[in-house]
Structure formats: C-alpha cells, structure tokens
C-alpha cells in the first residue's frame, strides 16, 4: 500500500444516476411499463383518459396510508389496524352528521379521530414497549368492534352536500381530488422521509434501534409520531372513502390493511425494516391499480386478481434474490 496517510475519501462511490439505474425503483418502472403496455393491447377500453382516471380510485386511498405505513415499516414496526381506523373514523363522522355537523366539522372530526386511534397504538407500542404486531392486531378488532356496536346492521347515509367532493370531485379535467391529494401527500412524505432529520432517525431506528438510542435519537418519540401518522393518513383515507361511497357501514374498507402492506413491500420496503423509499411505494401503487383495472376490463373475477397480486408480490421479491444467487 503506497496510499498517502491522509488521502481524500470521495463522497460517493457511484454517481446518483448509476445508483438510480441499479435500484429497485428502476425494476418497478419496467414492471409498470410492462403492465401498462399489456393492458393497452388486451383491452380497447384501457387507453381512455376517463377510464384511466376512474382506475386511480383503486389505489389512491390505500396509497395515502401506504406512505405512512412505509415509514413505520422502515422503522421496524407495523400497523395492522389501519382499515379498522377507517371504520371507526367513518362511524364517528356518521354520528356527527346525525348531530347536524357541517362539512368543515366533519373533516375536523375525521382527522382528529384518526389521530386519536394512532395515539392509542403509539402509546401502547412506544410508551409501554409492547410489540406493534400484537398491539395493532388487538386494536384492529377493537376499533372495528366499536364501529359494529354503534351501527349494528345499520348504515349512516345522508352526508351533506359538498362532502361528496373529497371522493367524487375533480380538480381539473380528469384529475380527481383524490389523485391530487395522493400526489401532494407523495411529495410531503418523500420530503419527510428522505429530506429531514426525522426521516434519517426513522432509518437509523429501523437498522439498529439500540445504536440509534445511543446516538441520542429519541426512539420512543419517533415511534409514537409514526403511529400518529398512520392514524392521521387513515383518517384522511376514511374521509375520501366515506365521501366516495356516500355511506358508512361497519364493514367499510375490510382487508385494506393487507393491501396497504402489500403495496409497501412491493415498493421495495424491507419488511424487516431499515430500507425502502417513497418513490417505490408510488410506483407499487400505480402497478397494483393498473393490474386491478386491467383485469376488471377483461372481466376477470376478483379472486383471480388476488391470486395474481399474490404471485406478483412473491415474484418481485423472489426474482432479484434468485438472480443474486442466494
């Protein structure tokens, strides 16, 4: 070794472009294009602006939650109660219209009740140190259970005029309010995860929570905030979904939690924590939405769609590992 004692260590090994081309997100872009082209050939109705616009409703609500879920999973935790939070939030809003609440109050109630549910999860996990998978399986039953007690086999309807905008309105031409909100939230969560100290702490905790604590990171506080975020985004999704359906039943959003987690994992977030990106989740949302829509156009039954999505998930996770020879 003849290197000088104090040689300069470069910042980066690869240029950001090389890194981007080799990333998981690049694979997802290829998959997304493949799904798009296949759909375009398979059905004459696919390449239609309004049809495509309709298709985005397949993923927008779930993707809003998936952004917060991605951060939570990167930090090594999980929240399986998100779909039940939607049910509880929707029920809370239904009770509010019975009492004659207007649109602004409905939105406020939706957001705060989502945050409260997140705070319950966060307190149990971050405050009491219980494992998040157990806590949120518990609150999954709890939150939806409350909704069932309140509603029984009834439904709340009669949401006021103007409330329908969140789930059915259009910002401009074919671009729905939900799609616009999805885009704004994608940017906000991208910045939060990839451009702030908080996001860095999330990665540090997911990689090694003990070392993060030794480095002065307030681990419990970060975890609590992450649960608040999944609660809040579930509240937002509940407002959109309730508005779109125009009614509240206790069975609303059943099974959303697994689709959200699937989206996150398909997006390249390690289920063991420590790595992943918001861009990956955005791409995974588009892929899942287009697959669902394309199959719908071809009149493929729902169960076949589930089978395909399941295989897609296992495939995209397994193939890179096989290629790497492990």
């Amino acid at each position: 070794m003849t290197a000088p004692a104090n040689r300069l260590i470069p910042d980066r090994l690869q240029s950001p472009l090389t890194r981007a081309l080799r990333s998981w997100e690049a694979v997802l872009v290829i998959v997304a294009i493949a799904v798009f082209v296949t759909n375009a050939f398979a059905s004459p109705y696919f390449l239609n602006a309004w049809n495509l616009s309709d298709a985005t409703f397949n993923f927008t609500e779930k993707a809003m939650i998936a952004f917060a879920m991605a951060m939570l999973i990167i930090a090594g935790e999980i929240d399986l109660s998100v779909a039940s939070i939607i049910a509880l939030v929707s029920t809370a809003m239904g009770l509010a219209i019975q009492a004659g609440a207007g649109v602004p109050l409905l939105v406020l109630i939706g957001l705060t009740s989502g945050l409260l549910c997140g705070a319950v999860n966060g307190f149990l996990v971050a405050g009491m140190g219980l494992p998040s998978i157990v806590v949120t399986i518990g609150t999954m039953s709890l939150f939806r259970g409350i909704s069932f007690i309140v509603l029984g086999d009834q439904a709340f309807t009669g949401y006021p005029d103007g409330f329908d905008y969140f789930g059915q309105g259009y910002v401009w031409w074919v671009f729905s309010f939900e799609l616009a909100l999805f885009a704004v939230m994608a940017v906000v969560f991208w910045a939060l995860l990839h451009r702030t100290n908080f996001g860095r702490a999330v990665y540090a905790i997911g990689n090694n929570a003990t070392a993060a604590q030794f480095s002065g990171i307030r681990v419990a506080r970060v975890r609590f905030i992450l649960f608040l975020l999944t609660g809040l985004t579930s509240g937002i999704a509940a407002i959109c979904l309730t508005s779109r359906l125009g009614s509240t039943r206790p069975s609303i959003a059943t099974g959303f939690e697994l689709e959200v987690v699937t989206m996150v994992v398909l997006g390249g977030v390690s289920i063991l924590g420590g790595s992943g990106s918001i861009l990956g989740v955005v791409l995974a949302a588009f892929i899942m939405g287009m697959v669902t829509f394309g199959f719908g156009l071809l009149n493929v039954p729902g169960i076949v769609m589930s089978i395909f999505l399941g295989l897609l998930l296992i495939g995209v996770i397994a193939v890179p590992r096989l290629l790497r020879g492990k």
Binding site: D11, A191, R195, T196, N197, F198, G199, R200, A201, Y203, A204, N207, N208, A211, A212, S215, G216, I217, G274, S275
Partner: peptide
Amino acid sequence: AIRGLPIFQNVTLPSLTRTSRSGFL
C-alpha cells in the same frame, strides 16, 4: 455502529441538529 447505513450518516447521526436547517437535511 449502524452497519446498514452509510459512513457519513453514521457520523452525523448525533449531530443532525447542527448539519441541518429547520429540520431539513
């Protein structure tokens, strides 16, 4: 050590308040 993170992110982890501006890296 946080082995999964890059060297520079390990070094700055406890000093982020100094290297960042209003919470942004």
